[in-house]
Design a binder for these strands. Structure first.
Lengths: 69, 69
DNA sequence: TTTAACTGTAATATATAGTTTACATTATTC
DNA sequence: GAATAATGTAAACTATATATTACAGTTAAA
């Protein structure tokens, strides 16, 4: 489940810890999402969008083929 | 958790049942998502996008305020 | 106005998203 | 190159997304 969270997070100058705190989630959750090892819920995706100021499509859209990752 | 799934599904002329089958999920899950009573996972959102041919933003973006619904 | 297709929803069960605690590894800075 | 911050990850736990079964309400067509 590839995504662009890490890039966007670095762009707004936040550590995983800081992003997690702003969202109200643990650092581990952010780490696993960035690594593509989690299948986050829509609510969490939207929270991340808010903080890093990107749209769902910008952060989470991936073509059907790459999605299996 | 408001969204535009129902509108998009009707546009492509599918019943909840048919959409559910194409995605590999139960009809109840689709019903509850359309009603905004579920917080679906990203993978499921992307599957719905595929079938109804819409983007994540088109189906699931909602402003921060309305999101609490 | 009955019949059938579609939808809403409730109860219980199961799978998995997210937490907690903890430790290891990889930058970064002194 | 030691100290510290940032990140990866594992195990056991908790919360919740989704399945299963079932039934009731709604709509449309006959």
């Amino acid at each position: 489940m590839k995504n662009n969270v890490k890039i966007a997070r670095v762009q707004v100058n936040l550590t995983q810890q800081q992003l997690a705190e702003k969202i109200g989630v643990t650092r581990q959750t952010i780490s696993l999402i960035e690594k593509g090892k989690y299948n986050p819920t829509l609510k969490l995706c939207l929270s991340i969008c808010d903080v890093v100021q990107k749209s769902l499509d910008e952060l989470f859209w991936v073509d059907k083929e790459e999605r299996t990752k």
